[in-house]
Design a protein around this nucleic acid. Sequence first.
DNA 1: ATATCGATTATCT
DNA 2: GATAATCGATATG
Length: 215
Amino acid sequence: MPRTRTPKPSATLPPLDRGFFARDPRRVARQLLGKILVHELPKAQLTARIVEVEAYLGQEDPAAHAAAGRTLRNAVLFGPPGHAYVYFIYGNHYCLNVSCEPEGQAGCVLFRAAEPLSGIEEMADSRGIVISGPKDLLQLTSGPGRLCQAFGITRERDNGRDLTLSASTLWIGDDGFSPRHVVATPRVGITKAADHPLRYLVDGNPFVSRKLRPK
DNA sequence: ATATCGATTATCT
DNA sequence: GATAATCGATATG
């Protein structure tokens, strides 16, 4: 039975500012671990602590959507940092990224998994899951598609949204917590540049999207 | 436990 | 026309 291993967020939860995102995506990715994804709904506040992310480097990264330059779809990546890049994949799922680096450079971080903290019932509804035990929480936000579904994130509504403003409804908060142990592995589900260790996870956290392969 | 596969569509070649 | 930064279901050991 999985245990919550991180403290609850404090009452005040300032959003990360634009400067936080205006850096190398590898640095941003690592430091996003432990931060809190927030979605304010009329009746509830959805929050989850980020436990797994991936860095995409921009035009020099063959696996990045920005690899072939600016298009209609990836335009947000070339804009200012701290904005949501949401894309639709496999005909089924949305994935949430945040743009990084100064305007003109297309690096980003993909949100892959989080540990639910509040708004659990609403997340379960959105996911179409009935929570009957602690293990069911693991299905809520463990995976980029699941995370978006639990939070109600879509391309139509959220692509381009400024994630540095709490007025945006969707933002990233910092309660001062940072995880003790972080590990890096190759990124999931890509074929090009598949060998670089640009996937960052909180070591041992049960809410990551895949268990670490024991060696 | 791991492996394979179908769903379903926007985007790019 | 092929592919894709996925998920959930099914098959098999």
